[in-house]
Design a binder for these strands. Structure first.
Lengths: 341, 341
DNA sequence: TTGAAAGCGGTACCAT
DNA sequence: ATGGTACCGCTTTCAA
């Protein structure tokens, strides 16, 4: 069906070797024949079979992306979408295809072993995932988002979660809040670990009591945020402010508060993490720790590309700065105790 | 590096042909040798090189997805995310990888010609895209979302846009609205064409005047929806209700109305299309035409799979039913003329 | 039931 | 500067 290198060779009256040379832009051949061959290739609507090329040249313009979640989960949380935007941008700039695999794989190595991708970006926050280690041991080109809390050998990119949580608490404390809750993700997640640490540091700096009862863990979904917020607001001693692990969950929390007749921010302040696009469109607009997810995605692709090309990474672990974005979901505490509806 | 069929053959003391047979589950061989070979393969952590296999067997477990937009655009609009959820689900069920390509390609055929995908799902609404025709002529397995308004040969899946718009107008008219605006997408889009038609049919049925001035076209982005809504609400004769081409834009429109001190739904009713996840989380929650995007994605993958397997499609063009979801962004017109802020 | 060998579409080495 | 050819990893006929 599709034109092959042989077709071109026949048409041009040269050998396949010559065609290959012309096509791969090797030097050491007359401009004439090259021109001629290129022209014929164009006429024949020829595209090299990347499989065949990959087979022999061990080079493939395909970046693998593994998200060990269902596609339903991954495409629900804007967090992934933002990262994907960044990866997609770099991929396009460098003419790379993107190969996806979602949950259900028994091995991350497989995609690579299958010969379908030159390297793999793993977007996963679990720190105890044996599949990552397995792939790394097999010397598969890998970049992790966000990577491990304690830096290991595998290249990674992430935003500064620790600093983000610290900044959030500092801001809230400055506003006068003394009971600040944390709706955190599961503790096998890098984000959760680092944000808890930053939160504690912030508390400490402002001489605020660390109260375990104000820390609730959940699955970082929107529904989960909704549910945990209800729980938080049913406490005997309701906090006046709450950090939520991501914007998506924060939206759930926001709705929960409003359902229970808490006014945001008068009765309770809410801060999210991420600053994904909808964060400014909620009611009230969400105060949040802006994390450059798009850039994280972009960098991860750039790093992976370097690795697959055998280049050295200037920096194995990139931690991108975050920023507090103040909107309308935070305010000084009112001091008024609000009845639970 | 990775184990190959040869390694297994050597280890098992058989020929590569026998190994291949065992691995591809062909019959006509002793269970003994097969068991043995399978065991060794497992021990060696063997995965077939899909490139090599694809090269000879012309079969590849990779579904191509082309979205002729930037990844930034595609991953911003939840519409795409929903479709991708569905495609991802089917892909996982059938053990297919997903290969993505975004804007910037000069040809849809390329991905296929490259030998990287068994077939391609094109998610694009432009009806005048020559690249689709080109790919189709080259006999590349193709499924279109949403396809063409006037059915052609290429398989397609879509929700019933026409009926959706009709239902929306009917509902609004029933509420007593007489000036119903349409914030529509560009008219080279199937969605826009069909929704305009459904809108007109609804108007006609309820003996409402068709007023060109109440139809604004834009790029279907959130910002665009915001901007066009401002324009609409600055009209001398402000409409009392407006249909917006998708939920994402509808959110922009909602915010615009509120910025201009229009109360939703008292002063103006808003209906979106899609019922994407955040639609119920806006303030007020959005009335919308629920379109089963996930199912559309799922079906498209299922159809493509059939085509690539050489099976006949029972139905070449699927049109999935839509449903009116009534929330809080719509109400009877107040009759009160509101000053523009 | 098993093996030898050709070939899928390329690349790259070694000749010429 | 160009051609012949081995080979990448796998499947598939044909023969044994």
């Amino acid at each position: 069906m599709a034109a092959t290198i042989k077709d071109i060779a026949r048409e041009a009256g040269v050998s396949v070797a010559t065609v290959s040379r012309a096509l791969t832009e090797k030097d050491g051949m007359s401009e004439e024949t090259r021109e001629c061959i290129l022209q014929i290739a164009k006429n024949l609507n020829y595209y090299p079979n990347l499989q065949a090329r990959g087979l022999v040249a061990k080079k493939l313009d395909v970046l693998g992306i593994i998200i060990p979640r269902t596609s339903e989960f991954a495409f629900s949380n804007p967090f992934y979408a933002e990262i994907l935007k960044g990866i997609g941008k770099k991929a396009r700039e460098d003419g790379q295809y993107l190969l996806f695999s979602f949950a259900g794989e028994d091995s991350y190595a497989r995609m690579y072993q299958h010969g379908l991708a030159a390297g793999i970006i793993v977007v996963a926050n679990r720190i105890d995932d044996p599949l990552i280690e397995e792939a790394w041991k097999m010397k598969i080109p890998l970049v992790l988002i966000p990577g491990y809390p304690q830096t290991r050998g595998i290249p990674s990119v992430d935003g500064d979660s620790f600093d983000g949580a610290f900044k959030a608490v500092e801001y809230l404390a400055g506003l006068g809040h003394r009971r600040i809750a944390l709706l955190n993700g599961p503790m096998n997640s890098k984000y959760s670990i680092e944000r808890l640490a930053g939160y504690r540091k912030g508390l400490k700096k402002h001489h605020l009591l660390f109260d375990k009862g104000l820390i609730l863990e959940f699955d970082a979904s929107m529904e989960g945020g909704h549910q945990k917020m209800r729980k938080l607001l049913s406490l005997r001693q309701v906090p006046t402010a709450v950090l939520v692990i991501n914007d998506y969950s924060a939206l759930g929390a926001l709705r929960a508060a409003q359902e229970m007749s808490f006014k945001v921010p008068e009765d309770i302040s809410i801060i999210g993490f991420g600053d994904v696009p909808f964060a400014s469109m909620t009611d009230p607009p969400l105060t949040t720790i802006k994390t450059p997810y798009q850039q994280i995605g972009y960098e991860s692709a750039a790093m992976l590309l370097k690795v697959t090309q055998g280049k050295r990474l200037a920096q194995k672990h990139r931690v991108l700065p975050v920023e507090l974005i103040i909107r309308k979901s935070t305010a000084p505490p009112s001091g008024r105790k609000v009845a639970v509806s």
